[in-house]
Computed example of a mutant assay.
Amino acid sequence: MKYLSDQMLIEVYHRAVDLQLDAAFIELLREELQHRKIRITQFSA
């Protein structure tokens, strides 16, 4: 995850939610967003 830019992480998160990927993967992305203190105002899940 550390190789993803903040913007790319946000895009990957939204894409994962849109595609309804594995819940554990989406949770991993959410944890990384929280770790980086990035707030996503619209959770689609």
Rank of each mutant, 00 (worst) to 15 (best):
F25K: 11
K2Q: 12
L21Q: 06
I40H: 04
I40F: 04
L4G: 01
A45M: 15
K2A: 11
R15E: 09
L33H: 03
T41N: 13
H14A: 09
R36Q: 00
H35I: 06
Q20W: 03
T41R: 12
R36K: 00
K37S: 05
R15I: 07
K2P: 07
S5Y: 00
D18E: 14
D22T: 01
T41Y: 11
V12P: 02
E32C: 08
Q42D: 11
S44L: 14
V17I: 08
Q20H: 08
K37D: 05
R30D: 08
F43K: 15
R15T: 09
H14Q: 13
Q20I: 08
F25N: 07
F43W: 14
M1R: 07
S5Q: 02
F25T: 09
M8Y: 13
H14E: 14
V17G: 05
D18L: 13
I10D: 07
Q20C: 06
L21S: 03
Y3Q: 14
E31H: 08
L9T: 07
I38L: 07
D18Y: 13
I26D: 03
S5V: 01
Y13D: 00
D18F: 14
E31N: 11
R30V: 05
T41K: 13
R15H: 06
A23P: 11
I26E: 05
Q34T: 09
L33F: 02
A16M: 05
A23G: 10
Q20V: 07
E32W: 10
E31G: 09
E27H: 12
Q34M: 10
K2Y: 10
L4N: 04
Q7I: 10
Y3S: 15
D6P: 02
L9V: 08
M1C: 06
K2V: 09
Q7R: 10
R30H: 08
F43M: 15
Q34R: 11
Q42T: 11
R39H: 10
A24C: 09
F43E: 15
A23D: 13
I10Y: 02
